Amino acid sequence: MSVVVPCFRCAATIDDAVASIAAQTLRPAEVLLVEDASGDDTLDALHRVAAAYGSDWIKVIALPANRGPSHARNTGWQQARHPYIAFLDADDSWGPRKLELQMAALAADPDIALIAHQMLVRPRGTELPEPRSPADVQIVSRTTLLVRNPFPTASVVLRRDLPFRFDEDFRRSEDYLLWSQIVLSGYRCAKIDQVLAIWNRRENGAVGLSDDFDAIHRGRRDLRRKLVRQGLLSKHEFLFASTIGMVNRMRRELLRGLRRYRSRRRPRP
């Protein structure tokens, strides 16, 4: 098992991310930290972490120019040496039995090409409850991918030899596009119905790419069009998925408007 971690200006969070990898009950064979030309002290932090755990286990890959998380993940994917790859973002954390349960599920059903699990947003340092064993593994249908993205990137383990990669022209929803290509091409994909990792809640009002909902909507519209061009999505499926996307956008706008309305009505001290 190889673990690929794209790293961009993550000096403050990379220690926690790598610690959650090192704490796995099934320790991966290698960790690839791909530094995406942050222009700050991130590279120094990665070398410090690698030295602490051993350069025979952690490999730091320094990219010459910033090209985004898709290129960073693809670079790690290319240099990975083991049959399965797990992805972790540098500001997230895994529960200690994540890889153990996923690899057990893959051993029980070797035809699975990709397996993920649930994640929750929690404050940094939150401990996950002890997962149930054996894990309840559910095969993810084609229809599910038309409705939503069921595979958080930091939850995914996939076969290294899959003939797909992250689309480096997509800055948002690039993960959703890749998972859709895999599922819609007929590969068997699954999800464990348990929370085995967390998105660490951002502090001090920090925002990221995932907070720009208008850009996400445009990205998902573009990915649906690309799937049609690739012959992976029929016109009927395209219309169905587009309708679901529009409904979700309207719902999000309604909730955003209600929050603004309530904040204006809130009495000032």
Rank of each mutant, 00 (worst) to 15 (best):
V4I: 15
R9Y: 06
S20Q: 03
I21P: 04
L26F: 14
R27D: 12
P28Q: 09
E30I: 03
S38I: 01
D44E: 15
A51P: 07
D56R: 15
I61D: 01
A62E: 06
A80S: 15
H82S: 14
Y84M: 07
Y84C: 04
D91A: 03
D92F: 00
R97P: 02
E100F: 11
L101F: 05
Q102S: 11
A105I: 04
P110C: 12
P110L: 10
D111T: 13
H117R: 03
P134F: 09
D136N: 15
V137G: 02
Q138G: 07
R142L: 00
V147K: 07
P150K: 05
P152Q: 11
V157P: 07
L162D: 04
P163V: 00
R165A: 09
R172S: 02
L178H: 01
V183T: 10
L184T: 13
R188H: 06
K191I: 08
K191L: 09
A197Y: 02
E203H: 09
G208K: 06
H217A: 11
R218Y: 08
R221N: 08
V228P: 00
G231C: 04
G231P: 02
S234L: 14
K235S: 15
A241M: 09
S242E: 14
V247C: 02
V247E: 05
N248F: 01
L254V: 09
L254E: 11
L255D: 12
G257R: 08
Y261D: 13
S263K: 14
S263V: 10
R268W: 10
